[in-house]
């Protein structure tokens, strides 16, 4: 089937019609709003332009992003490094599973006071909060992915003397990678939430801190513009992640699409 430009435009129109309608509706309904808490959308957009496309991007959005990347990277690394041996050795898994089950059930924000006590209100605490929340889906999915490796491929590795680190790089990690990436996707959204909560809790800089400061000082249009910025932040990261996913798992999606078509 050949995709013509017309078809793509049609598809685009379908995708855009509802978001644009909702946006227009909100713009129109709020235009004459005198409600203090719900100012006109146009005013919020104007503040958005002035604040977030201006200095605030550097002073608040970038620090938030930095903490998120640091915490998320540690969570990914630790989740995989701990998850791989647990997936490979059943005895280890049996011993560790109930403990992990308990720790992942603790709502991550509940650990913020503990981490504040241990690390103060600085960046270390915020990064640690992100790690303690984002690591679980990554770790658990790594365990599942490694556990589910194909037995014939495993025998192939054994007969061709593929062992040790080479086995890890060429067999164990790639075969678990689709499941690991699923965990990373969930971990990312949890990481964003915890980034915001940790900043709200210890208000200094960052998106979460800025929003809560605006709210406390009743700068309502500014506050809503921050909420909008946060929404766009989450959306942009999920788009970036999807691009990464498609690229890193090219083989997996290719294989799956082929199976679906047949």
């Amino acid at each position: 089937m050949v995709r013509t430009t017309g078809k793509i435009l049609h598809r685009l129109a379908i995708e855009l019609v509802l978001p644009l309608a909702l946006f227009g509706l909100l713009l129109a309904v709020s235009a004459n709003s005198t409600n203090f808490y719900f100012p006109p959308l146009a005013r919020v957009l104007e503040r958005f332009d002035a604040l977030w496309l201006g200095p605030r991007f550097v002073t608040d959005v970038l620090p938030s992003l930095g903490r998120l990347i640091a915490g998320y990277a540690i969570a990914c690394l630790a989740g995989v490094v701990i998850g791989v041996p647990l997936g490979m050795f059943a005895a280890l898994r049996r011993a560790a599973e109930p403990v992990l089950e308990f720790f992942r059930a603790i709502p991550p924000p509940a650990l913020i006071p503990v981490l504040v006590m241990l690390a103060g209100f600085g960046d270390t605490m915020k990064v640690a909060v992100i790690v303690t929340g984002a690591i679980w889906p990554i770790l658990l999915n790594t365990v599942e992915g490694v556990k589910g490796a194909d037995s014939v491929l495993d025998e192939t590795c054994r007969t061709y003397q593929i062992r040790g680190m080479s086995r890890l790089w060429n067999f164990v990690l790639p075969s678990a990678s689709p499941q690991i990436v699923v965990g990373m996707r969930v971990g990312l959204s949890i990481g964003i939430i915890l980034m915001v909560i940790s900043e709200m809790f210890a208000a200094t800089t960052g998106l979460g801190a800025a929003i809560i400061v605006f709210q406390r000082s009743f700068e309502i249009p500014e506050m809503w513009s921050g909420v909008l910025m946060l929404g766009l932040f989450g959306f942009a990261l999920s788009v970036v992640f999807r691009l990464f996913e498609r690229r890193a798992l090219k083989w997996y999606y290719g294989m799956r699409d082929l199976e679906r078509r047949s």
């Binding site: 014939v152 491929l153 007969t159 003397q161 075969s175 294989m255």
Partner: peptide, 17 residues
């Protein structure tokens, strides 16, 4: 090390990645 094995399940003995 002197032996090579070809399995019945070709779809599962090649690395899809």
């Amino acid at each position: 090390a002197e032996m090579a094995v070809v399995f019945q399940e070709y779809g599962r003995s090649l690395f899809p990645w």
